[in-house]
């Protein structure tokens, strides 16, 4: 039950803080603008595409690029939303109160992580509502859309875990945001050099986040990609839990 109490606390804090709403509104506004441009370009190219066999459809030209835009935004928004989860508690002195209340470190971390992911799910749902609002007028590839949505969800969940872990190691939320941003970008661009050199396989590509997200955005769901996200999330949450547990030892 401690987990539910922590989840409720964090959701309540996210709900009443203007910062989360401002980020959500700015993000949705920017994505809405992108969506309008994408729909315009989709309509403009309709005649050209009609003559092509296997031409890209609504999902390829509107829905997936929109989710791609959300992914770009997520690198900045997720660390900003997650920076205060644990660093803010430590800075406030409330982390010690939570630990003294008998809440295990794992429940504190999981509760805060789950709240952040739920908040980002709202963001993902609102973004997805844009292409879905016009889906009745087209014949979308539902399978590809589902895979891309799963990819984005897993990416947001991974970035959230990174943000929570970064937040667990400091009492300065701004520092946590910078570390979260750098680690997220680092994981994404890890294989940039290899890709430019034309290397499509190898360990560096397997480690990079971009490889796994791009597969899902293309509609390819593989257990390797899913396992990568599960491992990153589990590792980050385990690190965060360990760090919070050592707060009692370090003081």
């Amino acid at each position: 039950m401690n987990f539910i109490a922590m989840l409720r606390l964090e959701l309540l804090r996210l709900r009443v803080r203007p910062f989360g709403w401002v980020l959500l509104a700015l993000g949705i506004g920017w994505l809405g603008w992108n969506f309008t441009l994408m729909v315009g370009s989709f309509l403009a190219s309709q005649v050209q595409r009609a003559g092509l066999p296997d031409s890209p459809g609504y999902v390829d030209l509107v829905a997936v690029p929109l989710l791609g835009a959300l992914a770009q935004l997520a690198f900045l928004v997720v660390p900003l939303l997650g920076m205060s989860t644990l660093a803010g508690e430590r800075r406030n002195g409330t982390l010690a109160v939570l630990l003294a209340s008998g809440v295990p470190a794992s429940r504190i971390v999981l509760g805060k992580y789950a709240a952040l992911v739920l908040w980002l799910l709202v963001w993902l749902a609102l973004t997805l509502a844009m292409p879905l609002s016009l889906a009745h007028a087209t014949s979308p590839d539902w399978g590809k859309l589902a895979a891309a949505t799963l990819g984005l969800f897993l990416m947001l969940a991974s970035l959230s875990a990174i943000a929570v872990a970064a937040s667990a190691f400091t009492s300065h939320p701004a520092l946590a945001a910078v570390v979260g941003l750098l680690v997220g970008l680092g994981l994404w661009t890890l294989n940039l050099g290899a890709q430019r050199a034309g290397i499509d396989d190898g360990a560096i590509n397997a480690i990079a986040m971009s490889t796994h997200v791009q597969n899902l955005l293309r509609g390819l769901v593989s257990s390797t990609d899913l396992l990568w996200f599960v491992l990153v999330i589990a590792a980050c949450l385990a690190l965060a839990t360990r760090r919070i547990a050592t707060d009692r030892e370090r003081g």
Binding site: M1, L9, T94, V97, G102
Partner: peptide, 20 residues
């Protein structure tokens, strides 16, 4: 230490839930 964005009633509800 308090959570500045929560009301007094919300503090009590949170602490109560944490205590079961």
């Amino acid at each position: 230490p308090v959570w500045p964005e929560l009301t007094v009633a919300e503090h009590l509800a949170t602490h109560g839930r944490l205590r079961g």
